[in-house]
């Protein structure tokens, strides 16, 4: 692209206050802390109280990212989510209004766990095409509202949260710039992770089983496809940047499962200690997972200005995406 480069100017994140531990799950389901930890790497996750919606978390994360950027206006708001406040309309316009951003274009991106990377791509394109000089990109999800509370395989994995970055127009080579994207999908895998009911297909065929409104996931094929696609997509983004995997300072993968993160790092030849991991305390937060991991790593002082960073994700759809960037010099990012 010959237009301006999208540069990360601010970062913010939030999780709801309630902590759901493995022990709390073990008290009511046929599971245990050891069972959950050995299979997923997760110890606890945060879940919203009834009445708290994805948009509420998105507003908090968005406000924090704007404050971190020292900005009070942007030209566009993109919310990546698979758990919108309502099926219609999109969540982003209300989030933009609640943030006092005025009548800017605002819309949702639905690419589930790859949503944040997709939204970054859309926003970077808007900046390169001079449609916007700055974009607030928010990844927000509340999967606790769509998992079956009695399904130990999903309820133990997913948590709620939101994370956001502000992108602004910059010049090529500037620190903080987004460099090369790789995005893709395979609709033949649509049934791997899905909520069968609630959309137009179910509505057109009559009432659904109440259980069809919950998220269903096939763990083993998801695992295999996630590792394959994230590794291949990461390689494509690295090749597009002209970086070797060995030169990466940080691999920030979608926090789906610590064993997926390790397998992707191993496949790429990136040492496991270069993979950012915070799934142990937040679980899989879908579109929020990458910005939450970035906020954790930034707050810990791990991410330093100029670091070579690769973001990579796989999610329902199936969708996948990766992007390379150099880490910007940001004011201190608060932990959440």
């Amino acid at each position: 692209m010959n237009g301006p480069t999208a540069v990360v100017a601010g970062l913010g994140a939030t999780v709801p206050p309630h902590v759901l531990t493995n022990e709390m799950l073990a008290a009511r389901l046929d599971t245990s802390d050891e069972w959950i930890r050995s299979r997923t790497g997760i110890r606890s996750r945060h879940t919203v109280a009834p009445g708290t919606a994805t948009g509420d978390l998105a507003v908090t994360a968005g406000a924090r990212a704007l404050a971190n950027a020292g900005m009070s206006t942007v030209d566009m708001v993109v919310v990546a989510t698979a758990t919108p406040d309502r099926l219609c309309p999109a969540t982003a316009p209300e989030v933009a209004s609640r943030l006092g951003l005025g009548p800017v274009p605002a819309f949702d991106v639905a690419a589930v766990c790859s949503g944040f990377v997709y939204a970054l791509g859309v926003a970077a394109g808007a900046i390169a095409g001079r449609l916007a000089g700055s974009v607030l990109v928010i990844g927000a999800d509340t999967f606790s509202t769509i998992v079956d509370p009695s399904d130990r395989t999903t309820v133990a994995i997913f948590g709620d949260g939101a994370g956001a970055v502000v992108l602004r127009a910059g010049v090529p080579g500037e620190v903080g710039g987004l460099l090369a994207f790789d995005l893709g999908s395979d609709g033949e895998l649509a049934d791997l992770i899905a909520i069968p009911a609630g959309g137009s297909r179910q509505r057109s065929t009559g009432p659904a089983d109440p259980a069809a409104h919950y998220l269903a996931m096939r763990g083993r094929p998801v695992f295999v496809n996630a590792v394959r696609r994230m590794a291949a997509s990461a390689r494509a983004a690295l090749a597009g940047t002209g970086w070797q995997a060995a030169a990466l300072d940080w691999l920030v993968g979608h926090q789906a499962n610590v064993r997926i993160l390790h397998a992707v790092a191993d496949g790429l030849g990136v040492p496991r200690e270069r993979a950012v991991v915070n799934i142990d305390r937040v679980g899989n937060t879908s579109a929020a997972s990458i910005p939450l991991a970035l906020a954790d790593a930034a707050a810990a002082g791990d991410l330093r200005a100029g670091d070579r960073v690769l973001l990579t994700a796989f999610g329902a759809g199936a969708t996948w995406g990766s992007v390379t960037l150099t880490w910007p010099a940001l004011p201190a990012v608060a932990t959440f």
Binding site: S38, R39, G219, R220, P221, F223, V224, V227, R228, A263
Partner: peptide, 23 residues
């Protein structure tokens, strides 16, 4: 556990350079 076979699938595919399907 159930994910071990998924991990082995990926490792064998990488080691021997042949496609191994999930399942």
């Amino acid at each position: 556990d159930s994910l071990t076979l998924a991990e082995l699938t990926l490792l064998l595919e990488q080691r021997y350079g042949v496609p191994v399907a999930d399942g």
